[in-house]
Structures are given as structure tokens and as C-alpha cells.
């Protein structure tokens, strides 16, 4: 156990935000989901009791008959905003007084940093480089993440859960977002920051960063595993495998989104375009964990090998 190494990584000034992320992301996930579950209990209660549903104010917040439903911005909101501004300022001041921004040697193109890392918010993408070529991990995936986020409101056909926390009414979308945001985005940032060491090799927290460590990777391409040698054969084989993945993933996702009676009801509301768009983005999102598993379990480097690109 090399505590000094651990401390060096954790206390590197630019890693402090990730240490912060480790706490705030789980906290806010819990904070939001707790309200979601409270709302779900209320919904279950109201669904079981139609009389109550007619008279209840339908929120978990307390409400009494004489209370107004709206309050004045001045002072009830502005005082909170003012307080928030002060608190943020204090936090930022204290953080800035106690911890100095990093400054290393002057830039030197002849001296490569090892590991050389992107800023922390891009480390998820850099971590993806282990599993995909740069054109996918650095260009296609980021673009698809941006576009995929943008299309969310247009492919979510579920009218429930608009303006209140709920889990039960939006199980599929909540779980998908948490999978994408926490499991893929945040945890890959954490891996890229805290675990990847020299040569972008995996060092568990507490182990020493050994700059002379060598790992003999025995990754093979999938066509080679099947003994396919010719160029045309590899191209066709890869296309077939990728096509098969798309098909299998589409079937799996279709099963998931038509699993419950409620999900089928939402599915019936979707237009063909909405459905196809959602399938494409979910299939591509799922390809990341699939490729990670293929690499970690079966040591597969590329699935589709062509002279122009490799996947």
C-alpha cells in the first residue's frame, strides 16, 4: 500500500474536482431519488384512492387550505439567491486561498509528460481511447453524445413526470440517464483521473506508479480469432459482426422498452422516427460497455478491420 502515491494523486490540484465529484454526484443522485421515491409513494396512494386524488394538492410538500400557491419573488426568492451568491463566493474564496492552481514547467514540446492527460472533464473520452480508435472516441462519440443529449426531449414520448421527481413513472429514461451519466461519463472520468498512470496503464489506488512497468498486451482482432486472413474476408466478416451487434442490441432494447404494460403504452405513442432515433443512439451508447467487456474478457482489439478504419 503506497499511501504517498495515493496522496499525490488525490491532492494534485487539478484532481481535487474529481475528488469533489466522488462526493457530490452520489449525494445529489440520492437527494433527487429520495424525492422521487417519496413522490412514487404519493402516486401509489392517490392511485389507490380516487377520492383522495380529487382533493389532494398532489405534492409531497406540506400544504394547508389557507396558503397561497405562489409567493412573491421579493423577498422569498431573491433572499435565497443572495444567500447562495454569498455562500458560493465564500466557498470559492476559501478554496482559492487554501489551494493553489497548478503551474508546471514551461511548455516543452520535446519533453512528453507521462501520463499526459486531457483536462479532467475530457478524461472519459480519453479513457474511451483504450477501447476505440481516436476517430470514434475523440470525434464521433463526443458528437453523438451532444446530439444524443439534444434529441432526448424529442424522443421521450412519456408525458408523465413533467416537473416533479419520480422514478416509477419514468423507470426506463431515469435508469438510462443514470447509466449514461454516472456509470459511463462520471466513472470513466474517475478512472481516467485516479487510476490511469504512466503509459495510461491501470494502477489500483494505493499502488505505486511504476514508470518502467510493461504490460504485454495479447489483444487480437476478432477476424484473426476466427482465422480469417484475406482483406476482403475481414471487411465482410467485420461488417457482419457489427451488423449482428446492431440487430441483437436493437432486439434487446426493444424488449426492454416493451417490457411492462406501461412501457408498451408509451411505445405505442412513439412515431417511427422517434423510435428509430432512440434505437440508434441507445445501440451506439451500449456499444461502449460491450466493447469494454469484449476487451477485458476476450482480449479483442478490433472487430471490424478495414484498410480505411478499424472498429
Amino acid at each position: 500500500m503506497d499511501l504517498h502515491q495515493l496522496w499525490t494523486i488525490v491532492s494534485t490540484p487539478d484532481n481535487v474536482p474529481i475528488v469533489l465529484l466522488l462526493f457530490v454526484v452520489p449525494f445529489y443522485a440520492w437527494y433527487g431519488l429520495r424525492q422521487a421515491f417519496a413522490n412514487d409513494r404519493l402516486i401509489a396512494q392517490l392511485e389507490g384512492n380516487p377520492e383522495m386524488a380529487k382533493t389532494h394538492h398532489r405534492k409531497i410538500q406540506p400544504f394547508k387550505a389557507g396558503w397561497t400557491r405562489e409567493v412573491h419573488v421579493w423577498p422569498y426568492l431573491l433572499r435565497i439567491e443572495f444567500l447562495a451568491a454569498i455562500i458560493v463566493t465564500v466557498i470559492l474564496m476559501v478554496w482559492s486561498i487554501t489551494l493553489n492552481a497548478p503551474l508546471e514547467e514551461p511548455s516543452n514540446p520535446t519533453l512528453t509528460m507521462n501520463p499526459s492527460k486531457a483536462p479532467w472533464y475530457f478524461l472519459g473520452l480519453q479513457e474511451m481511447l483504450v477501447y476505440f480508435d481516436p476517430w470514434i472516441a475523440g470525434v464521433v462519440m463526443p458528437s453523438l453524445i451532444i446530439v444524443g443529449l439534444m434529441v432526448i426531449p424529442y424522443i421521450d414520448a412519456n408525458p408523465l413526470g413533467n416537473g416533479y421527481y419520480t422514478y416509477k413513472q419514468r423507470k426506463f429514461s431515469i435508469l438510462t440517464f443514470i447509466f449514461g451519466f454516472i456509470v459511463l461519463w462520471v466513472s470513466m472520468i474517475v478512472i481516467g483521473t485516479l487510476i490511469r498512470g504512466p503509459g495510461w496503464m491501470w494502477f489500483w489506488p494505493g499502488t505505486t506508479w511504476d514508470h518502467n512497468r510493461l504490460i504485454f498486451e495479447v489483444n487480437r482482432d476478432l477476424p484473426d480469432l476466427f482465422g480469417i486472413a484475406g482483406r476482403a474476408g475481414k471487411i465482410i466478416f467485420g461488417a457482419v459482426v457489427v451488423g449482428a451487434y446492431f440487430l441483437a442490441a436493437a432486439v434487446l432494447i426493444h424488449k426492454l422498452i416493451t417490457k411492462t404494460a406501461f412501457n408498451r403504452k408509451i411505445y405505442a405513442r412513439m412515431s417511427v422516427l422517434q423510435y428509430v432515433t432512440m434505437q440508434v443512439f441507445l445501440i451506439i451508447m451500449l456499444s461502449l460497455p460491450v466493447k469494454i467487456l469484449a476487451r477485458q474478457l476476450f482480449r479483442i482489439k478490433y472487430v471490424w478491420v478495414t484498410p480505411w478504419f478499424n472498429i
Binding site: 457530490v24 416537473g163 440517464f177
Partner: peptide, 25 residues
Amino acid sequence: RWGAHLMVIMVELHMFRVFLTGSYK
């Protein structure tokens, strides 16, 4: 420097909250 990091974290959490409350609908 720290304000910039804080802003990135806050933007991501803001998006998380907006998603959880279905406010994009």
C-alpha cells in the same frame, strides 16, 4: 481556475436535476 472547475461540475449537476425532474418535457 477553481471557479472554472466548479462551473463544469455545476452545469453537469444542473443537467442531472433537469433530467430527473423531467423539466425538458
